[in-house]
Simulated assay, not measured.
Amino acid sequence: MDDDAARFQGSLPEFYDSGLGPVLFRHYADVLGEAVASTAPGRILEVAAGTGISSAGIVAHNAGAEIVLTDLNEAMLQRAADKVPAGTRMQVADAQALPFKDASFDAVACQFGIMFLPDVGAGFREARRVLTDGGVYVFSVWDSHDRNRFAAVVDGLLTETFPDDPPPFYRVPFGMSDVERLRRLAQDSGFGTLRIDVLPHDAPVASWPEFADGLIRGNPVSDQVRARSGDLDALVRTVGERLAAEYGPAPTTIPVQTILFRAWAA
């Protein structure tokens, strides 16, 4: 399916890691790791671990804990192996149908992954199932395009380039900022107390071309563009130009905003 927003294969992990990681993910990986560590878990499961940027944050703040990494895409986990201690358990797994026994973990973590689940409720139910009573599910989502202008710029360019059939990718990761909806889903899935933090950040951009490469080639929008016979090189150049016009020359920072949830298993 050409518009599959969860398929990170081929060369995508490389561009995702190098182009997007330093700007969008590293800071929030530390935030995630600290949030998980605040509950002193002995066994931690990370779902949608990606290329291991968030995993490194979890490892750094949870010394001595047993950590299991999962992702739907094997190519992402292959890159994650370089960022975590040798011997760390990794497994291809669907967050909607986890291959683990009930009450197997003290904490489940997911950075910017639940937005890609076709059935978000199933993801919540599975996280609750594998958690011990009193365990915590720590997950984060991106706030809306209004709070992440860089994403609106890219989505606007894609709509301008393909007015009859715009690639939908950039509506997915930034389309789940409804806090009350997520609160209800969590509580309906067996979670009790929730803590919700809105986290603005000035993200560092060293190079517009590298960031633009990640924004176009580091996620499934590249496949969506190819399926529409689009010019990836031209899009990368234009993204870089428009972001430079918006924020000034690099190196610089751009404002981003995410939402961090901690949900305790009732």
Rank of each mutant, 00 (worst) to 15 (best):
E160F: 10
A80G: 01
L98W: 00
F25E: 09
R7C: 14
D94M: 09
D188Y: 08
G21R: 02
G190W: 03
F162Y: 08
D119N: 15
A109H: 09
A97E: 11
R125G: 12
V120I: 15
R242I: 08
T258Q: 05
F191W: 02
T159E: 14
Q91T: 04
H145L: 07
P249W: 06
P173V: 00
A49P: 13
F15T: 10
E160Q: 15
D178N: 09
Q78A: 14
K83F: 07
S177A: 15
R26D: 14
T238K: 09
V256S: 12
W142A: 06
D213R: 10
E160P: 15
G190Y: 04
F211M: 15
D133Q: 07
F174G: 04
F261Q: 08
A5I: 06
D106M: 07
L77R: 00
I58H: 07
M90S: 05
D233M: 04
D155L: 00
A5N: 10
D213G: 08
F124S: 15
F162T: 06
Q78I: 10
D197E: 09
A263S: 08
D119E: 14
T253Y: 03
G218N: 10
S38M: 03
T252W: 05
Y170D: 02
L243S: 11
D106Q: 13
V154G: 02
V84H: 02
A250C: 14
A65G: 12
T39C: 03
R237K: 12
A151T: 01
H61M: 01
D223L: 12
R195W: 07
P99T: 12
T39W: 04
D231N: 01
G190P: 03
G50E: 12
L72C: 12
S18M: 01
F191T: 12
A250R: 15
Y170I: 06
A75I: 07
I44F: 03
G121C: 15
A107I: 05
S189G: 13
E74Q: 12
R79L: 06
E46Y: 12
R184Q: 05
M115R: 01
G113C: 06
P99W: 08
V239E: 02
F105H: 03
V236R: 04
L232T: 07
Q9R: 15
K83Y: 07
L157P: 08
A263Y: 09
L20S: 04
F191K: 04
A60N: 11
F169I: 06
R128A: 15
H27R: 14
V92W: 05
R26C: 04
R262E: 01
L232P: 08
A75W: 02
T132H: 11
R125C: 07
E180R: 04
S104T: 00
S229R: 14
W142Y: 04
N62G: 04
L235H: 01
E34A: 06
S144R: 12
A48W: 06
S54R: 00
A29K: 02
R242L: 10
A56Q: 13
A75E: 15
